[in-house]
Design a protein around this nucleic acid. Structure first.
Lengths: 139, 139
DNA sequence: CGAAGGTTGGGATGCTTTTGCAAACTGTTT
DNA sequence: AAACAGTTTGCAAAAGCATCCCAACCTTCG
């Protein structure tokens, strides 16, 4: 069931993980590359990408903005939430969740100017869960 | 203060807006392009991108996943929220907002299998608001 | 109508991410 | 320690999404 059954801990993978754990800046892949390059000058960017992917699948790190492969547009400009299918990446409207009045003022990093927040749901759309069921029955 | 002071309503812009309002599928730019092309076969993809941008700035439509230019990674895989700076796009940890227990079951589209939700904050980071202040003083 | 200037099409460009492949390496078994 | 099988790497090429450039064109408004 695991995506990568026989993982190895290579020096590259190790260093990427270590460097990423050192900081709390949520670097991009390219920034990770620069960090790691100081210790492994010959590492390639492709390796960094591959390992970030693998490490996030194994749960050692987290990839932010999952399923945000491309921008999407909504003809309805009024305020409402969305639900994203984690399988097909499509987005549907969520009948506006109660406008959650979150008391954030005190909780946020003091020096940040808070503008707003966004609440997004994710799940599996009818289409994709049908597909799963069909596949399961086939076996 | 407006970004586009003298907007014109061209046929292309009109059709893009109409098509986008017809659906609730939250299409990507490329999907919009395909939809619009049925009515305006000679429209270019660049025009679609330009107009989606303009229309979302004028508030006629909404761009989802704003400021999600590239993926970022977090060495801390535990559950916590983030705050994104809308200026520089950098991400910081938000001291975990109270795990909002949202009663969603009844609210979501009935046929969706809900897996979870994500709460994200956005604002201006200290760095960027400093910059704004300095710029303002300079005038 | 005619001038002013926003907008278009089409291609070029940029940047992020993915992929293919031979060589190198890891972990395990002899 | 040597050999083996299967992963992983570096490099380079390619793919994919988004933006930019520019001459020609169109919309708006007096």
């Amino acid at each position: 069931m695991q995506k990568h059954p026989n993982l190895r801990m290579t020096r590259q993978r190790q260093v990427i993980l270590e460097e990423l754990r050192k900081v709390n800046t949520h670097p991009s892949a390219d920034e990770v590359y620069e960090m790691v390059r100081k210790r492994l000058p010959r590492i390639s960017l492709g390796t960094v990408y591959r390992n970030l992917e693998i490490l996030s699948e194994s749960g050692d790190i987290k990839k932010l903005e999952p399923g945000c492969s491309l921008k999407r547009f909504d003809g309805n400009p009024s305020e409402h939430c969305h639900i994203r299918c984690v399988r097909c990446d499509r987005i549907a409207d969520a009948p506006l969740a109660p406008d959650i009045e979150i008391d954030v003022a005190g909780l946020m990093p003091a020096d940040y100017k808070i503008i707003g927040h966004r609440l997004e749901f994710f799940g599996v759309c009818p289409n994709c869960s049908d597909k799963t069921n069909r596949d399961a029955n086939r076996r």
